[in-house]
Nucleic acid binder design. Structure first.
Length: 117
DNA sequence: TAACTGACTCGGC
DNA sequence: AGCCGAGCCAGTT
């Protein structure tokens, strides 16, 4: 199930953006999709995260949450609490699977990277 | 090739 | 205020 490694795809773009998310910050599926010019492809971004598991370098998928700041993807990690623990370790408060003050930690690539040189 | 899937979102009830 | 259904698109089977 890994015969598409050679294929350059939307996934690769997603990985590239996720890797750019600064430590201590979080982004959302729709924000990344929007930045890549596919505002309706939030689901694909989530799927890309699933495909990123086990990849090297490690993709900080734990910094990507849904539009509400909810850790919807935590159940997909090797350890369900891994996502939450990593976020807390970076200084991001998480309560009931949801990021506290989400907007404060939110990192939007469309805003932060709009002027790539 | 066609059909199905999903770590999403939004809108309606 | 919370639950349910439909749209969305690229990758997988």
């Amino acid at each position: 199930m890994k015969y598409s490694a050679k294929t350059h795809s939307f996934f690769d773009d997603v990985f590239a953006v996720v890797e750019l998310i600064p430590e201590g910050r979080v982004s959302s599926y729709v924000a990344i999709a929007r930045y890549l010019g596919a505002p309706r492809s939030a689901r694909m971004v989530g799927w890309a995260m699933n495909a990123s598991i086990g990849r090297t370098p490690a993709i900080p998928a734990h910094r990507v949450v849904n539009a509400q700041g909810l850790l919807t993807g935590k159940i997909h990690f090797s350890q369900p609490d891994e996502m939450e623990e990593k976020l807390k370790a970076e200084g991001i408060p998480v309560l009931n699977n949801q990021i506290v003050d989400f907007e404060q930690y939110f990192w939007d690539p469309s805003t932060e990277l709009k002027m790539e040189s």
